[in-house]
């Protein structure tokens, strides 16, 4: 395996891991697989590119605006869609799933209508010379994505362990009712989980957009990748999404390399079927206290 291929896996893996982490936060906080996460990432990436190329914004300002959009979308999903549905129908799963799917599609269509239905190139956030690593070189966007991923994971791990809100997060997702009885600020914690997840997804989207561009339909695929990375890694620890993301990236990058160009989609489908059928709880599961 060439070093360049290896770097590709790291890069794509970082993206998948961030998406999976974004899934995990909402899953812990609200017990929902938020399928609208891919579209948050898409909206952030697309808005950034659109602001830079069409309106001539400086990259950093555009990126901040993109992140803000992702965060707002996440907060609105929680407050205006998922909570009302839960309030009306209790914890039933299907209505929540349908509402999330509708949100996914709505963000996609709205982005298509506002930003246009074409492909946009990603915008490099920081410009510096590629860093040489032996025979391979890491480009500036790759370095940025890698550093951001490490930082995000470290921060989230720290937040879950050290802050009060972070420690309460899992209790809230596990049993909302019990958490309410214990007097935990369920609503606030849940809101924070959504906002953080939007922020992380947005960051992932705008840092990854340079790789293959971004268009209004990218979100669905990204959602599926993030979900799959989460399922592979498991929900047992903050680091699980990182492992799941890297493994999924290895499959995605290596399968076309060995089996031809169309193989990536088949390989991912195969991985999904295998995992769902055999190990739906992922590689890392939470240890049960005994």
């Amino acid at each position: 395996m060439s070093p360049q291929l290896f770097l590709s896996i790291i890069e794509v893996g970082c993206f998948f891991s961030l998406l999976a982490l974004s899934f995990l936060l909402v899953l812990d906080g609200a017990a929902v697989f938020n399928f609208a996460i891919g579209p948050y990432a898409m909206a952030a990436g697309l808005a950034t590119s659109w602001l830079v190329t069409r309106l001539g914004y400086p990259v950093l300002a555009a990126a901040l605006a993109g992140l803000a959009i992702a965060v707002v979308l996440a907060a609105v999903t929680d407050v205006a869609v998922i909570r009302p549905i839960e309030a009306r129908l209790g914890g039933a799963e299907l209505p929540a799933l349908v509402a999330v799917a509708a949100t996914l599609f709505l963000i996609e269509q709205a982005a298509g209508t506002i930003f246009g239905r074409g492909d946009f190139p990603g915008q490099p956030l920081l410009g510096f010379e590629p860093i040489a690593l032996g025979s391979a070189a890491m480009s500036a966007p790759q370095v940025t994505l890698l550093v951001a991923t490490v930082a995000v994971f470290a921060l989230v791990a720290w937040w879950l362990r050290a802050s009060r809100t972070g420690r309460m997060l899992r209790a809230v997702g596990d049993n909302k009712h019990a958490a309410q009885l214990l007097g935990l600020p369920v609503s606030r914690i849940r809101g924070i989980a959504f906002i953080l997840s939007g922020l992380i997804a947005g960051l992932a989207g705008l840092l990854f957009a340079h790789k293959s561009g971004v268009s209004f339909t990218s979100g669905l695929q990204w959602t599926l990748w993030g979900f799959l990375a989460l399922v592979i890694g498991g929900t047992g620890s903050v680091w699980a999404p990182l492992i799941g993301g890297m493994l999924l990236a290895a499959v995605q990058i290596l399968s076309p390399y060995y089996f031809g160009s169309a193989a990536a989609d088949y390989a991912i489908l195969l991985v999904a079927l295998l995992f769902f059928a055999l190990r739906p709880s992922g590689l890392i599961t939470r240890k049960v206290r005994t």
Binding site: F33, F35, E93, L94, L97, A101, L220, Q221, L224, F227, L228, V231, A262, D265, Y266, I268, L269, A272, L273, F276, P280
Partner: peptide, 21 residues
């Protein structure tokens, strides 16, 4: 045996792979 999110994910992945195929 899984929650309906899994069926949604695997069927979407199939639809994508099939279009590519």
């Amino acid at each position: 045996r899984l929650s309906s999110f899994f069926l949604v994910a695997v069927t979407l992945l199939f639809a994508i792979a099939f279009e590519g195929w």
